[in-house]
């Protein structure tokens, strides 16, 4: 009898925690997705903050919700791979849309002439920079798709989410190292005539270093908080 009572008390607590977490995610996930579109960001941000405050309140009430660092990490990976995928998919398949030919080439003119110099001149369209196109083809359908899926699994505190986030974060190290090397090798092409060369690019892009912040956490977190 007593065992059953204890078990049901635990079950109630678990159920309440799950419900609180679900409710918080119902605000945070749409918020994060809107923020990745680069246009609906001002709407998405308050939704995201509202979800975070719900989760914080639940944690203060003693419910066992996801740790805040996991929430930040999971959603940051969603933002980082979402923003990258949207920019690069536009350049890959929608290079002749008006929005791409104005805003993406304008961005290129300001920070990285890879997105401006001889734009839409290759038969495949989009960037004319050697290397850049190859990174797009190589990364968007592989690592960025995997990263989005892994982040969702991670936010659900699934073991496979944790494992695949480790895999794709190491991928992240590879593409950061390769991408910056490519950028430096073709620096004349990519920085000549841009509005804010070098310093502008670094300030704009440095906040995509998610993998470097994620790897130390993923390798030191107690794996038992993730379930099969």
């Amino acid at each position: 009898m007593e065992r059953a009572a204890v078990a049901s008390g635990y079950d109630v607590h678990q159920e309440q925690s799950r419900e609180a977490q679900r409710q918080a995610d119902r605000w945070m996930l749409p918020g994060a997705i809107m923020m990745t579109t680069a246009i609906l960001g001002p709407i998405g941000f308050p939704l995201f903050l509202k979800g975070m405050s719900i989760q914080r309140k639940a944690a203060l009430q003693g419910l066992s919700v996801r740790p805040m660092i996991c929430t930040l990490l999971g959603y940051l990976v969603i933002m980082d791979s979402g923003l990258n995928s949207i920019g690069w998919s536009l350049d890959l398949v929608a290079h002749h849309s008006l929005i791409n030919r104005t805003l993406v080439t304008a961005w290129g003119n300001m920070f990285d002439a890879g997105y401006y110099w001889h734009y839409n001149e290759l038969w495949i369209g989009g960037t004319g920079a050697p290397g850049e196109k190859s990174w797009e083809i190589g990364l968007v359908p592989t690592v960025f798709c995997m990263r989005l899926a892994a982040a969702i699994g991670f936010l659900q505190m699934k073991r496979w989410g944790h494992q695949w986030l480790i895999v794709t974060c190491w991928f992240g190290v590879i593409y950061w190292v390769g991408y910056v090397a490519n950028m430096t090798m073709f620096a004349d092409l990519r920085y000549t005539g841009v509005v804010f060369p070098v310093i502008g690019w670094w300030i704009y892009d440095i906040f995509y270093i998610t993998p470097f912040l994620a790897i130390p956490y993923l390798h030191t977190v107690n794996r038992e908080i993730f379930s099969d």
Binding site: T184, A187, D188, Y191, V198, W202
Partner: peptide
Amino acid sequence: MFLIQLHM
């Protein structure tokens, strides 16, 4: 890499 680019 940042320093190399700054130098360039």
